[in-house]
């Protein structure tokens, strides 16, 4: 996707979005209204593209979207369960619409419904399904034609904790063990942490960041919790020389260290926090400050996400 710009009724929704993805589990994060669903719809060729170029599975989505869709599975957030059909009927129907022969579609429908855990409920009318079953059914219809990529829009929306875990397990299995590419659009950061290895962060239609899910642990700015006794003023002055920032959290001193100033901390995949630990230990030893506690404060994906979005 290059320089994609898209607008609904002259209201810009995506602004110059630019990325290329390899198969894997990709999390699409962003606050409500940031353009996540629209981005997925552009990837599906469901909306007329504005400026820019979108290519999926080697097909230009402006002209050959239908051909590309044969290799894509889509699980919408809202609705998507056609009433009056049984679970297996709906999934087989969607399989046939995806280009599967009738008998193959029915066979695949049984297989994928078993895979998502709806084998016993497959002949029931899908109108009577619970929310969790409907989500599984939507996942099954997205899988029936064995797509190369799955686009999932809020797949755990409305599920109880148990249902959520089991759906996430299925998605993780598909992405990590079955070789399917998955784009998971959600605002639930825990879902992304559980499934994805890479995230795209959207804000107000712009691609704000793209990084590995554990990338925040290798970032330049690291926070350390420090507690000790001795000449604290001298210790703080020494750390200030390193360019640290300080914040008091009860008895703890929170030291924010910018590792980008330390060439020895730079690694190919990011920054190594052990270099920061060594630097702080050296300052403490030099300034006669006995450390009782020194620990890098873990930064959750949520903290990192909010920092990025609110920046």
């Amino acid at each position: 996707m290059s320089s994609l710009t898209f607008a609904y009724l002259a209201e810009p929704v995506l602004k110059g979005v630019d990325f290329a993805l390899q198969k894997g589990a990709i999390g699409l994060l962003g606050p409500n209204g940031s353009g996540k669903t629209t981005l997925l719809r552009c990837l599906l060729g469901q909306v007329p593209l504005g400026r820019g170029h979108v290519e999926v599975l080697g097909w230009d989505m402006a002209t050959r979207a239908r051909a590309a869709r044969a290799g894509l599975g889509w699980m919408p957030e809202r609705g998507g369960v056609i009433p009056g059909m049984s679970g297996v009927g709906l999934v087989a129907y969607m399989g046939e619409l995806s280009g599967l022969p009738s008998r193959d579609a029915m066979q695949r429908a049984h297989e994928v419904l078993h895979y998502v855990g709806l084998a016993d409920e497959r002949y029931r009318s899908c109108q009577d399904y619970s929310q969790g079953m409907k989500q599984r059914l939507k996942l099954a219809q997205a899988l029936v034609h064995d797509p190369e990529w799955l686009f999932l829009d809020e797949p755990t929306s409305g599920l109880d904790p148990r249902g959520r875990v089991s759906v996430l397990e299925l998605i993780r299995d598909l992405a990590w063990n079955k070789g399917l590419g998955v784009i998971l659009s959600t605002h639930l950061l825990a879902d992304v942490e559980a499934v994805c290895h890479e995230i795209l962060v959207l804000r107000a239609g712009e691609l704000l960041a793209r990084q590995a899910v554990d990338g925040h642990t290798r970032q330049a700015r690291q926070v350390f919790e420090v507690e000790g006794f001795g000449n604290e003023e001298s210790f703080i002055a020494g750390l200030r020389d390193l360019g640290c920032e300080f914040e008091q959290d009860g008895r703890l001193l929170l030291v924010t260290l910018d590792l980008s100033r330390m060439p020895e901390a730079r690694r190919e995949t990011g920054f190594d926090a052990t270099a920061g630990v060594t630097a702080i230990l050296e300052v403490a030893a030099a300034r006669d400050y006995a450390l009782r506690r020194l620990r890098r404060r873990p930064v959750s994906l949520a903290e990192e996400f909010y920092r990025m979005v609110e920046a």
């Binding site: 009433p83 280009g99 219809q141």
Partner: peptide, 18 residues
């Protein structure tokens, strides 16, 4: 009407049909 109510269009047009 039913397809519109149940967001069925989204399902149909995620398939290779026009």
């Amino acid at each position: 009407a039913t397809d519109r109510r149940e967001n069925g269009m989204s399902l149909y047009f995620s398939r290779p049909l026009g």
